[in-house]
Amino acid sequence: MTRPVTLHEIEVAQKQISAHVLRTPLRASLALSERAGVAVYLKLENHQRTGSFKLRGATNAILRLDQGRRSRGLITASTGNHGRAVAYAAKALGARAMICMSTLVPANKVEAIRHLGAEIHTAGRSQDDAMLEAEHLVRQKGMYFVPPFDDAAVIAGQGTLGLEIASDLPKTAVVLVPLSGGGLASGVAAAIKGRRSSARIVGVSMERGAAMAASLAAGVPTNVQEVETLADSLGGGIGLDNRLTFQMCRDLLDDVILLGEEEIAAGIHHAARIEGETVEGAGAVGIAALLARKVKADGPLVVVVSGGNIDPVAHRAIVDGYQSGEAR
C-alpha cells in the first residue's frame, strides 16, 4: 500500500508554492454562525488567483519537475478548475499545456483555460473519458501528465489550505470540505489532524454521481455514472487503481454528507445574497450542508469554499430562481 502524504510534506509544499499562490482569507459568517449555534468561518478559495484551490496542487506538482520534464509540455484531464490551474502555472513557468475535458465541463471554464493559452481536447461525456484521452496523448506526444488528485505532490499542495486554517484558527473543531477525487479532502485532513488531532473533517458532496462517497461506502474504489449536477467540479471517478486518496479519505474523514440539487442551489443563493460571494456549486456544498442542518459541531467550524468559477448567466439564474422559488 502506498504511504500517505505526511504533514511534513505539506509544510514543504507550503514553502515551495508561497510565492505563486494567495493565502486566502478566513472570514467569519454571522448568519451561518447563528444557524449552526457555533462560530462559523468561510475559507474563501474562490479568491484564489485561478478562482479555486486547484492552483495549490498543480503549482506544487509542476514546480517539482525539472526543466527537462517541463519542456516536454504538460497535459492533464480536468472537470475545469484543475485544467485552469495547470494552464495558469504552465504559462507562468513558460511551459506548453494541453487540457482534456468532457462535454460536461461548463463553457465558461473551457474559455478561461483557452484564454490562458492552453490547447484543449474535448473527449466523451465524463471525466473518465477525458482521462483516457489524456493517457492516449501522453503516449503519443510524450508530454508529462499532471494528475488532478491522486498524486502526492498534488495532495500536499492542496493540504497547504489546511495549514492556513490551522494557523488562523488553532481551535478549529470541524472542517467541511468538498469531496470529489479526494485530493483536497485528504490533503486538508492530513494538515488539520496533523496540527489538531481532535478536529473532525467532514467531506461534502452531491447525491448525483459522488464517486468517492460511493467508494467509501463500498470499501473499495468504485465506478459511478457521471451526470449533470450543479456541483460539476465534484464529478468524475476516483480510478479503480486509486493509490492514495481513497486510503487517506477512508482513514482521515470522520463523516461524509451528500446533498440534493435544491440544497446546493440554496448554498449558492446564500453565498451570493448573504455572504456577498460568487461561489460555484462545488464550492457551496459546505454552506448548503449547514443550511440543511446536516452538520453538528461543538466548537468553531470552518467551511472550505473551494471555488467560484461559475458561469455568470447560470449563477444569476440560480440565485434569482431560488429567490422566486423556481430553483432547479
Rank of each mutant, 00 (worst) to 15 (best):
P4D: 12
V227W: 07
I274G: 00
L74N: 03
L179F: 00
I264P: 08
K141V: 00
L132C: 07
P221K: 10
D129T: 06
R328G: 08
D66T: 10
L253A: 09
S306L: 11
C249L: 00
A292S: 14
T172S: 02
R208Q: 11
I120V: 15
M206P: 01
R70I: 14
I268R: 07
E135M: 12
H121P: 01
Y41S: 11
E111C: 01
S215W: 02
G237P: 15
Q140C: 12
A265T: 00
G73D: 04
D66Y: 10
L137K: 04
V40C: 06
L259Y: 02
M212K: 10
A87T: 08
E275D: 15
H315A: 06
P300K: 12
P178S: 05
R96K: 13
G142F: 13
E45L: 09
V202F: 05
L176E: 01
L93F: 11
N223E: 15
A166Q: 07
R195I: 00
A87I: 04
D241N: 14
A185V: 04
G182L: 00
A107V: 06
S33E: 08
F145K: 13
A292M: 07
A85Q: 06
S102W: 11
A327V: 01
G209D: 05
S306V: 11
E226T: 12
I268P: 09
E263G: 08
L161Y: 03
V174Q: 02
R69M: 13
S78Y: 03
A189L: 03
V154H: 08
A112L: 12
A134P: 01
A213L: 00
K91M: 11
L93S: 03
S186F: 01
I264D: 02
R114S: 05
L104R: 06
P148K: 06
I257G: 02
G159L: 09
E262I: 10
A85W: 05
L22G: 01
G286K: 10
V12G: 01
V305W: 02
L301H: 09
L63A: 08
L259T: 07
L184K: 02
H20F: 15
M1K: 14
R196Y: 03
A185Y: 07
G157V: 05
A123H: 05
P106G: 10
